[in-house]
């Protein structure tokens, strides 16, 4: 910590919560809607429907949210200073990405007190892929003095579908950045908050260490494998039932059929038939989003089973394929829903 400086940000490194607030502010000022973390277990901010589903379709998106991300196999009982079962991402999605998105991103680093001229910054190739989601993109890991602080991705495909327009995704690793700013060697020593009156510090360890320890114990030792499998089976069955119902009710139109319908509509002075109207209403209220939540449940259970060492080689490939089918199926259903029902009701 520098003793003399004119800039207030350099006086004192940001606490963990200040870091989050600053970044949220920064992106809010640039037109992002600040969403809250998705209230379910996800492995990465990308899996939140605010990213995974919103990047589909043509509607513009500018959204930012913090997302705790759980990766059971990464747990280290709180013993490793650099590894966490649950870490915190700040996720920004911009669709379409502005041309100066890299510059805006660099400004966000200034906003959290990183004086760029005093650091070594590189954009190094790092492409992102989530096979289970049929999703991939190209981009970089942003290296700050040798530390990977951000994953920067131009999404290309999601749910097996080409995206048009594409989205730009910026994912900040908040713990790493905080430890860098505060110059501490253990994530658990990161200062989370300082009481403005007493100056009393609360650390990341104070808030999270017990959770890391106990959840590691659960993930690696205590979780009941039989019950995990049972949960997985139940969630999967429910998700699959929803998807089946969806397909039964709204069979995917061949593009020729759709063109014909559009043609009909144009010929008959643009008025939709009452049957069309009913169908659209039914489509709009179909719980595709719930089906996606069930996918997230399955994905997390799979990760738990994996951490537990309970998935055999043959099972692994098969289960992943099943989850992929569900996730991709949901993404396709969502796209269909938005395309045929969404636009009309979007006010």
């Amino acid at each position: 910590m520098l003793t003399v400086s004119t800039t207030p940000v350099a006086l004192k490194a940001l606490t963990f919560q200040e870091l989050l607030l600053r970044l949220q502010n920064f992106w809010a000022e640039r037109g992002c809607v600040l969403a809250q973390p998705y209230d379910m277990e996800v492995g990465a901010g990308t899996m939140s429907p605010d990213t995974f589903l919103r990047v589909l379709g043509p509607d513009p998106v500018a959204i930012a949210y913090m997302q705790p991300s759980r990766r059971p196999a990464d747990g280290r009982y709180g013993e490793n200073p650099n590894r966490l079962y649950k870490h915190t991402q700040l996720q920004v999605i911009l669709k379409p990405p502005p041309e100066d998105i890299q510059d805006i991103y660099l400004q966000s680093l200034e906003a959290i007190g990183i004086r760029l001229r005093e650091h070594d910054i590189k954009f190094e190739e790092d492409n992102w892929e989530w096979p289970v989601g049929g999703a991939w993109g190209v981009g970089w890991q942003v290296m700050l003095d040798g530390l990977e602080i951000t994953q920067f991705t131009y999404f290309q495909q999601c749910g097996g579908m080409d995206l048009d327009p594409i989205s730009g995704e910026i994912t900040y690793g908040l713990e790493r950045i905080a430890a860098f700013l505060q110059d501490v060697d253990s994530l658990y020593d990161v200062v989370w908050a300082v009481d403005p009156k007493t100056g009393k510090q609360v650390t990341y360890g104070d808030i999270r260490l017990e959770e890391e320890l106990q959840l590691s114990v659960y993930n690696f030792e205590a979780a009941d494998i039989g019950k995990l499998w049972e949960h997985l089976r139940l969630y999967e069955a429910e998700c699959q039932a929803l998807l089946d119902a969806f397909h039964q009710q709204f069979k995917v139109e061949k593009s020729a059929e759709r063109k014909e319908k559009i043609h009909d509509r144009l010929v008959h002075d643009g008025a939709a038939t009452p049957a069309d109207e009913d169908m659209r209403r039914a489509l709009r209220r179909f719980p595709v989003l719930a089906a996606y939540e069930l996918c997230l449940k399955c994905s997390h259970l799979f990760n738990l089973l994996d951490a537990r060492g309970a998935i055999s080689v043959t099972e692994r490939v098969a289960v992943m394929a099943r989850i992929r089918n569900m996730v991709v199926g949901v993404a396709k259903a969502y796209a269909q829903q938005r395309q045929r029902a969404g636009a009309r009701y979007d006010g």
Binding site: R117, E118, H119, D120, I121, D145, G146, L147, F180
Partner: peptide
């Protein structure tokens, strides 16, 4: 590095790389 830092910068950067 992809920069020629000033003196204070060098120390910061060296420290950062050592830390990582």
């Amino acid at each position: 590095l992809n920069t020629h830092p000033e003196e204070t910068g060098i120390e910061t950067i060296r420290h950062g790389h050592e830390r990582v």
